[in-house]
Structure formats: C-alpha cells, structure tokens
C-alpha cells in the first residue's frame, strides 16, 4: 500500500512595501535597533563567547533597563541561552567556555577579578528550563538560599522570607498546608513556581529565566507569564523563550539572535509587527526557525 503524496503547500507570498535590511553573513555586522539605552541596569559590550574553538556569540552589545522584561528570541543554537548564562557567570562552570567583552551591572564589571561569582549570583538569580527543585521539602527549597547567605538571623525571620517568597511566586495558597512535603512531589508548573520562589527568596536584582515555561502546559504557562508581569515591579528580568507569543505577552523589549549574532533589538510591539531586518521577519513569520 503506498501513501498518496500530497503536494507541498505553496509558500504564502509576502507583500511588504518597505524595504528590509539584509544582514551580512560576514563576521562584522551591526545590530539594528536600540541595543544601547541610557541608565541601564545591565550593560554588555562586544561580547564574544567561545566553546573551545567554536564561537557561540559574536561581538554582541545589549543593554537591559531597570524593571523591564527583555525577551531573547531566536532559533535553536543561536546563542541566546549562552548569552543569558554569561550574565551571571554560569558559564564559568564549563571548563572549555571562554567569555570576552565588557559586562557591567550598575556600572560594576562583573568579570573583574575582584567580583566574586557567588556574590554576583546572589544579585542575579536564575530560573532554568526544567524545573529543578532540590530533593528536599518545599520549605527547605525556598530557605536554602537565605540560609547559605545568612539573610535570616532567626527561624521566625526565615519563615517570613519563605512565606513572602512563596506568596510572590503565587504558590503559597496551594502549598501552605504541606510546606514539609517534598518539592519534587509538586506538579510541573508548581515546581517551576517553587524554583521562582527559591530564586526571589535571595532578593536578587535581576532574574534570568531560561525558557521557564517550555516544559509546561498552557494553563501553567499562563500562570507563569502573569507572575513574570507582577515580578517586573521589583525585579529586572531577562527571559529566553522559544514561544514568540510568550515574548510578545511578557516583554517590553525583544532581542533577536541568529547564529550567535544579535540581529535586531526593539520594542516588543515593533519587533512583532514591523521588524526592520529580513532575518527577524523570516523568523517571526515562521519561514524558518
């Protein structure tokens, strides 16, 4: 029995009036849009990241403002996660990884010899793609950060931090009766909110999120997205996402990466309605990626 081959759907013709910018494929390129802003929280200049001989990020400069949500989008392997991980020096843990360029947080060089990565990570928290609660109780998961940093001087203060963090992460109501139950016993979405609570318990200034909702169902995703919007009041957030709808919903600015290069940065509304680069347009219209 043979299968009837269907004809490939004809490509939908794009009718664009304004001329798109073609980004050159050579190593020298220029990011389109406002990648540099006044008074940034985080500022990166001429960032290059190498894994051994392979270069993952090329000459990228990007500023992140106070209390804004910046979304990093782009096809798989474009370097957006690598860029995110270089913001709190998580790449230090990979022996073959080498980072060059200028990174400043509130004007402080985070790759300076005097900067302690432990201190940096207390200021720049991180939420990972896969929820990774410790195999401990819900309470201990949230209390771990404050404990190692000595943020609470007694148990009452620690309780206070744990409860506030769980409340901010929108999880307290669901788990208030079982704070001593294992964190790994929660559902996927709850686990991810537990990880967010764990991160904000340390009171960081910036939260990095690496595809925080990619393993979650639409309802859990919606809860996380609402949460990100609320967290923006107190934190600066950089989020990597594969979902363009998510980027459009939660972020104020969007940065598009392609093959290790920062192609275009702009207001989220502008990137998704009227991108200036052809590569950006191809990606957001689904022609590739």
């Amino acid at each position: 029995m043979s299968i009837q081959q269907t004809a490939t759907a004809p490509a939908i013709a794009q009718t664009q009036t304004n001329q798109k910018i073609m980004t050159s494929t050579s190593d020298t390129y220029k990011t389109v849009g406002r990648n540099i802003i006044p008074n940034p929280k985080f500022s990166t200049r001429n960032v290059n990241v190498f894994y051994g001989d392979k270069q993952a990020i090329f000459d990228t400069s990007l500023d992140i403002g106070n209390n804004e949500v910046v979304a990093l989008i782009g096809p798989s392997g474009c370097g957006k996660s690598t860029f995110l991980r270089s913001l709190n020096r998580m790449n230090d843990t990979i022996p073959i990884c080498r980072v060059t360029g200028e990174f400043t947080l509130d004007g402080e060089d985070i790759y300076a010899k005097t900067m302690d990565p432990v201190l940096l990570r207390a200021r720049v928290g991180m939420v990972f793609q896969k929820a990774n609660p410790f195999p401990k109780s819900i309470y201990d998961n949230v209390a771990y950060g404050p404990r190692i940093h000595g943020l609470a001087s007694n148990n009452a203060e620690l309780d206070e931090i744990v409860i506030t963090s769980l409340e901010k992460a929108g999880l307290f109501k669901e788990v208030k009766d079982r704070l001593n139950a294992p964190g790994t016993g929660l559902s996927g979405g709850q686990q991810q909110r537990l990880c967010i609570a764990r991160t904000i318990a340390v009171s960081p200034e910036v939260i990095l999120m690496d595809e925080p909702a990619s393993a979650l169902d639409p309802i859990a995703t919606a809860i996380i997205e609402e949460l990100i919007d609320e967290l923006r009041e107190n934190f600066t957030i950089v989020i990597v996402t594969h979902s363009m709808q998510q980027a459009a919903r939660v972020s104020q600015r969007t940065a598009y990466f392609h093959l290790g290069k920062l192609i275009e940065v702009g207001k989220t509304s502008q990137i998704f309605t009227n991108p200036r680069c052809e590569l950006t347009e191809n990606y957001i219209t689904g022609k590739f990626g």
């Binding site: 998580m90 843990t93 940096l120 990570r121 990972f128 410790f134 771990y144 340390v202």
Partner: peptide
Amino acid sequence: VPPSIKEAALGLGASHVQ
C-alpha cells in the same frame, strides 16, 4: 547526580564547595 541540581545551587549563589 543531575547537573540541574548543581546548577540550581550555583544559580542561588552557593559556592562550589557548598
């Protein structure tokens, strides 16, 4: 030991030894 657990601890600002 899953690297995700190590990353979680490092991401919270635990030192390598911790």
